[in-house]
């Protein structure tokens, strides 16, 4: 019976794979054709959504221990709950730092998922919208990259600081690009500049908070993750 189940599951997978292979290009290209004057915004949105897929599949396919899943879920939930704790200071958010720390100790795939899901979960509380896929992708990517350079980040404090600042700034800058693309149909530099300038104080607070989080609770949380890895995962 078990075998039949897996066989059925396999068949299901192949069929859905084929459907996706045809459906995805049709939707993307068809959309770009129909939404003529908004095709850039449309394509970027599609790319953001589709770009998440391989990372998710990577995590899905990996033989993941239940403990890794729970740890990732805990780190997501902490970064979301943390937004409430630090709510009095706008822009002071632990999300990026938590994503980087998770990735440093549990690898790129876990990093991507922590980032993407932190965005998704927090939007369940703060409201979903077209911004969700972008937040998911950018935070996920930050997690993925910090997983790749995990060993450097652990060793080199300067590198960690720079990384924290850059990821904070990059996150804010990327988020505004799409807003502008959507509002004007093309990339309007003045509007983009205005959007960036109006949020510059948040960008700074955000970058600073990343560094603060990475060093202050980050060190302790890192030790904790290390402890858990040795104590429970041998």
């Amino acid at each position: 019976m078990e075998k039949m189940e897996t066989k059925r599951a396999k068949k299901f997978n192949t069929v859905s794979f084929l459907v996706l292979c045809i459906a995805v290009p049709v939707i993307v290209i068809g959309g770009a054709w129909i939404f003529k004057d908004r095709q850039y915004a449309w394509i970027t949105l599609c790319v953001a959504v589709l770009a998440c897929v391989p990372f998710f599949l990577l995590f899905e396919k990996k033989e993941a221990d239940g403990r890794v899943l729970v740890t990732v879920a805990v780190m997501c939930a902490l970064s979301v709950a943390g937004r409430v704790l630090f709510a009095p200071v706008p822009g002071f958010k632990p999300v990026t730092a938590m994503v980087i720390i998770t990735a440093m100790y549990f690898g790129s795939e876990a990093g991507f998922v922590t980032g993407a899901f932190s965005a998704l979960v927090s939007n369940f509380y703060f409201g979903q919208g077209p911004w969700t896929p972008f937040q998911m992708f950018v935070w996920g990517l930050i997690g993925f990259v910090s997983g790749l350079c995990g060993s450097w980040l652990k060793k080199n404090r300067v590198f960690l600081t720079v990384f924290g600042i850059i990821s904070g700034v990059v996150f804010s800058l990327v988020m505004d690009i799409w807003t502008v693309l959507w509002a004007d149909g093309i990339f309007n530099v003045t509007r983009y500049a205005a959007a960036v300038i109006s949020s510059v104080q948040f960008i700074i607070i955000y970058a600073v908070s990343n560094v603060v989080f990475l060093f202050f609770p980050g060190k302790q949380i890192g030790r904790m993750l290390e402890r858990i890895k040795t104590k429970y995962m041998g």
Partner: peptide
């Protein structure tokens, strides 16, 4: 489609 991830999501929503 993504059973592991949906479980992670469910857990995260429970933890918040």
């Amino acid at each position: 489609a993504i059973p592991k991830l949906s479980l992670v999501l469910s857990m995260a929503l429970r933890f918040v």
